[in-house]
Amino acid sequence: MQYEGVLNKMQTEWNHPISYYLTFKNSFININQILDRNIKIEFKGYECLNCGQAKKIFRQGFCYDCFMSSPAVGDWIMRPELSTAHLGIEDRDLNYESRVQLQPHIVYLAVASDVKVGVTRKTQVPTRWIDQGASKAIEIVEVPNRYLAGITEVALKDMFTDKTNWRKMLQNDILDVDLAKIRSDLKSKLPDEVQPYFESTNSELINIDYPVLEFPTKIKSLNLEKTPCYEGVLKGIKGQYLLFEDGTVFNIRTYEGYVVNISL
Rank of each mutant, 00 (worst) to 15 (best):
N8A: 15
I34Y: 06
F24I: 04
Q33S: 15
I29N: 10
G5Y: 05
S19L: 14
F28S: 15
F24K: 04
T12F: 01
L35V: 08
D36I: 00
G5F: 00
I29G: 10
T23S: 13
S19C: 05
Y3Q: 02
Q33R: 13
N15E: 14
N30D: 14
F28V: 04
K25D: 12
S27E: 10
Y3F: 15
Q33D: 15
N26S: 13
W14Y: 01
I18D: 04
L22I: 06
K25S: 12
P17H: 05
P17C: 07
Y3A: 04
N26A: 01
N15F: 06
K25P: 00
L7F: 12
W14Q: 09
I34P: 01
I18S: 02
Y20D: 07
S27K: 01
T12N: 03
I34W: 09
Q11I: 10
F28L: 13
E4R: 05
I34V: 12
D36T: 02
N32K: 02
N15V: 00
N32F: 08
T12L: 02
I31R: 05
I29W: 03
L22C: 09
I29T: 13
W14F: 09
R37M: 08
I34M: 08
N8E: 14
S19K: 15
T12H: 01
G5T: 08
